[in-house]
Amino acid sequence: MTPPARATSTLFVCLLALSIAEVATLGLLLLNLAVLHIRPIAQLIGPVHGAVYLAVVMIAVFAPGLRRRDRALGFVPVVGGALAVWRMRRAVAPPTL
């Protein structure tokens, strides 16, 4: 049974946004560590990054219609969400010659 198209597209957009946010928050954390090293920035962005990562994992695990490999990709830190989105996009896209 395939999930409704609207639910799939909503989950796709949500997973895409969260994967971008995950990479962006990690980039901010690393930039802060390398250049500024301001503790309040790390205290603010660190938990946000963790929450975004957990949201990516939860969507990947509980989204209907995802294959096992796509669900497993959601557990990979930083790039897992982007890889899952890429695999979802490849599964939906028509083959090209």
Rank of each mutant, 00 (worst) to 15 (best):
P77G: 13
G80D: 08
M58N: 11
L29C: 14
L44F: 08
W86C: 00
L29Y: 11
T10C: 10
L83E: 07
L28K: 01
A72Y: 10
F62L: 09
P3F: 01
I45H: 04
V85Y: 03
P64Y: 02
V78I: 14
V78A: 11
P95T: 10
A82L: 02
N32F: 13
L54D: 11
R89D: 06
D70V: 00
V92N: 11
C14Y: 04
L83K: 07
Y53S: 03
V52Q: 04
P3L: 03
A24D: 02
P95M: 09
P95W: 06
P3N: 11
L16D: 05
L28W: 08
T8S: 15
L16E: 04
F12L: 10
R87M: 05
A21P: 04
L54F: 15
R69W: 14
P40G: 09
M88A: 03
L44R: 03
V35G: 07
L97P: 14
G74C: 03
D70M: 05
V56D: 07
L83C: 04
V61T: 09
T25K: 01
R71N: 06
M1R: 07
A5S: 15
L36Y: 06
M58G: 12
R90M: 04
G81D: 04
P64M: 01
R68D: 13
A84W: 01
M88G: 01
T8R: 15
F62I: 04
R6Y: 15
R68W: 14
G65R: 06
N32D: 14
L44Q: 07
L66R: 06
E22W: 00
P95Y: 08
I59Q: 11
F12W: 13
A5W: 15
V23R: 00
G27S: 05
R90G: 08
V56S: 05
T8L: 09
A21N: 02
R68A: 07
L73Y: 06
S19Q: 02
S19P: 02
A55M: 10
F75I: 09
L29P: 12
L28G: 08
I59V: 15
G46P: 13
V13N: 07
I38C: 09
L18W: 00
R68Q: 11
L36E: 04
A51E: 10
A34P: 09
A21M: 03
I38P: 03
L73T: 02
L16W: 04
T8C: 09
M58C: 14
V79P: 01
L26F: 10
L33H: 15
L66T: 01
A82D: 02
Y53E: 05
P47G: 07
P47Y: 08
